Amino acid sequence: MTGSAILSNILLFVFAILFIFPFYWIVSGAFKVQNVAVAIPPQWIPHEPTWDNFTTLFKNPVWKWTFNSFFIAFGEMIGVCLVASMAGYVLAKKSFPGRKIIFTMFVAAMALPKQVILVPLFTMIADFGWIDTYKALILPAIGWPFGIFLIKQFAQTLPSELIEAAKIDGCSELRLFYSIVLPLLKPAIGALAIFTFINAWNDYFSQLIMTRSTPMMTLPLGVATLKGEYTTPYGVLMAGAAFASIPMIAIFLLFQKSFTQGITMGAVKG
């Protein structure tokens, strides 16, 4: 192993420790009592670990919050993948006036902060009577510009000859999409599904604006409300944060390859 390779490995190890440390601090804090959690100097490893923080955490409707998070995340994931796969395929393989302009608008929308559209979006949701409902949290996210961009870039690599051959054989447009194009898009759809799920799970800002009642809260939002008016139960908050991170860690470990594919797909040129 060369000197540069050894140095690279050392730097990667150091950065890995730096990135992992906040998660370790959350997990260790989840097993500390309040006075130990805020003690200075800190107690790096709990001397007397306790489950009291998790007991206090689950006195709240945590399972309802967890269900809401999964329902919203899966709803967004299915909707985004369906819309993005159709829109991306059309933008990549169909010729029609204004196609480049429409795609440029999607790319520009990717750079638009969510806060910019918050007021008109909230007004529309309120006019529809959807405030504090699942529809308010799922439907506005279905037309995710990043998803359309990702699928479009991948769809450009599909063989046009195969699509033309299917048309010559008399395949209808709908069957062509579901029987030929959709299976070929599976790698891109898999990566997009993971990105969408994580984005929906962590979308604290939209959940905070669109929900009103405790039963409609998601897990990240519900955990944030555990902060007291005069005191902050750091151990309970850390227990909630550790519990909320479990699905994200599981998904990342199961689909690491799809994450890598999703990152590189956007660089594919048609």
Rank of each mutant, 00 (worst) to 15 (best):
I6K: 15
S8P: 00
V14Y: 08
I17R: 01
I17E: 02
I20L: 14
F21T: 10
V27D: 00
V27T: 03
V27F: 08
S28T: 13
A30T: 01
K32A: 04
P46W: 11
H47S: 15
H47P: 00
T50I: 12
D52G: 03
N53L: 04
N53T: 14
T55R: 14
T56E: 15
F58H: 04
F58E: 09
P61Q: 10
W63I: 07
T66W: 05
F67M: 09
S69F: 00
F71V: 11
F71N: 00
I72Y: 02
M86C: 12
A87D: 03
A87M: 14
G88Y: 08
A92P: 05
K93D: 07
K93S: 06
S95L: 01
P97R: 09
R99C: 00
K100S: 11
F103N: 07
F103Q: 07
T104H: 02
M105E: 11
F106D: 08
V107S: 03
V116Y: 09
V119D: 10
F122Q: 03
F122S: 07
F128M: 12
G129M: 04
T133V: 05
K135Q: 14
I138D: 06
L139S: 05
P140L: 08
A141H: 13
A141F: 12
I142F: 09
I148C: 04
F149I: 07
L150M: 13
I151E: 01
Q153M: 01
Q153L: 02
Q153I: 00
I163K: 08
E164A: 13
I168L: 12
D169K: 06
G170M: 10
C171R: 08
V181L: 10
L182C: 03
P187G: 04
G190L: 08
I194V: 14
T196G: 05
F197Q: 04
I198T: 08
W201A: 10
Y204W: 13
S206F: 05
Q207R: 05
I209N: 04
M210T: 01
T214P: 00
M216R: 12
T218I: 05
L221G: 05
L221H: 05
V223P: 02
V223G: 03
G228S: 09
G228A: 08
G228I: 06
T232N: 15
P233L: 13
G235E: 10
G235D: 06
A244R: 08
I246T: 11
P247F: 08
I249G: 09
I249Q: 14
A250C: 15
I251Q: 02
L254A: 15
S258F: 01
